[in-house]
Design a binder for these strands. Structure first.
Lengths: 115, 115
DNA sequence: ACTGTATTTAAGCGACTTCTTAAATACGAG
DNA sequence: CTCGTATTTAAGAAGTCGCTTAAATACAGT
């Protein structure tokens, strides 16, 4: 219910169809029909996935005649990466003197329990 | 339904309670009761969150008397970061000669449409 | 064996997700 | 204004999610 930005972003990324759409958009703008082509699902289904991606701020849309081309918007991806980077030391092996850093992680996320 | 590893990981991260649990585990092992303390929810609810995190490989559990302490396992976080890193250039501004790189992204995720 | 503490399992509920088909809308072209 | 193309909205089915309470299990100490 909180629907904090990070949760919305990760939820949007938690679907292989949506990740494939982002991958496609990495090589440039595309129409809905273009984006739907690789998938064995109806057009409304793709349209709904695009709405999720748009709601997460991962894509933006313009207007050209009857087309509504989509383009990648990577800002939210950066936010997700920034969050994950907080844990980078855990897979890079140097576990020294990072306690204070980790405490800042905790205080940043601690309030989520109240939502 | 595909339940590929990346989808499972991102889905596990798409909940603020679970991210807060990971943040807590960043400072060391903890019991279920310890982990549940900050949250206004029942113990079974926390236990279920832990099961999701364990299913995603984000935590591992041991046994000590009646306690089942949890510890962070960052391998899956690294996988998520690796995926996101593919898009790093999009928020770092250098959009030159990355076409071939991006095509590799596409071929990696292209098959998701068949699932 | 009995008690208390830690944790999980089971069952159920309301909300949300992902997909479908059918119908609606938006726009350019003729 | 009608026609075809692109896309969305609407409504509904099936499954999943996050939570609850009640009951079960696991183990240590006495």
């Amino acid at each position: 219910m909180a629907a904090d930005a990070l949760s919305v972003t990760f939820k949007a990324l938690a679907d292989p169809t949506r990740r494939a759409i982002l991958a496609r958009l990495a090589s440039g703008e595309a129409s809905v029909l273009d984006l739907a082509a690789p998938f064995a699902m109806s057009l409304p289904a793709v349209s709904q996935h695009l709405k999720v991606l748009e709601g997460a701020g991962l894509i933006a849309r313009s207007r050209a005649a009857q087309w509504r081309p989509c383009r990648l918007d990577a800002a939210a991806l950066k936010d997700a990466t920034d969050w994950l980077d907080t844990y980078r030391q855990f897979w890079e092996g140097s576990f020294n003197k990072l306690d204070s850093y980790l405490k800042s992680v905790q205080s940043k996320e601690r309030d989520d329990g109240n939502a």
